[in-house]
Amino acid sequence: MKEHLNNTWTNLRRSPYQSLAAVSVMVLTFFVASVVALLAAGSQTVLRYFETRPQVTAFFKDETTVEQVDQLQQALVATGKVDQVHYVSKEEALEIYRKQNKDAPLLLEMVTASILPASLEVAATDLSYLEEIAAVLQQHEGVEEVIFQQDIVTALQSLTSTVRQVGLGVVAFLGLVSMLIVMVIISMKVAAKRAEIKVLHLIGAARGYILTPFVLEGTCYGLAGAFLGWGLVYLLLLYSTPLLVNFFSGISFLPIPVVLMLALLGGELLVGAFIGSFSGLLAVKRYLK
């Protein structure tokens, strides 16, 4: 193995610009792959956040009695389309308001429990039931206003799905391009070593002995590209984390756990090694036929 690694290192060292080109295209592929993976995971987290939030909120009139609220709750549960129902009293609403505005004493002074409405927060078992549940709530005489966030969730679902599909498409295309470029670069090196390969054949080298340095070379391109692409994305992510945390306040998916990033790196290294070694194998096999 040491012999093969030495030969591989010699191959890499002797044509630095070709090696640089191969690694660069791999870096680009894995940079995009990492961005897509993080975007997909991030949008999924945002979607989950909205899905687990109360999806329909009904605000009650001041004169609505507790019995009326109980009645409504039972009616909702009876539909079988409701996952969770939570009643928020005027006092709880004030508590929430205080928490949300703890840094603005002026706003706190002006608000009392009496001016905040009690509400019922409802989560549906399926997003398609939201409209139906909202209609039940709106028909109730004690309900003043109903708001629901179906549009946001639907838009997010569509965005997540688009990010996944387009991302996968782009990554697959870039993966294919990387493979072809690595194949062409290794083919050039194999062509330059044709005479040497012939001699090795004649003096009894097995195919594996001839193949291995080129396959290892491809593997090196893949591994280096995966590591550098991932590293660049991780650096960018760390740099922009404060900004993103601010932007997504309330949705806690940042900073991304190191274990998750390491798992992403592991996956990308595996894929990189596969793309590189497969390209190297294809390139050299053509010449060994």
Binding site: E3, R14, A195, L200, L202, I203, Y209
Partner: peptide, 26 residues
């Protein structure tokens, strides 16, 4: 079969030692 080629066919980027060692390394 050991072959002595008319045009030697030694690998240019390896030393004499490395060239001679090749068949053994296989």
């Amino acid at each position: 079969i050991g072959v002595v080629f008319q045009d030697f066919k030694l690998l240019a980027d390896r030393t004499v030692f490395e060239n001679v060692a090749l068949p053994l390394k296989f």
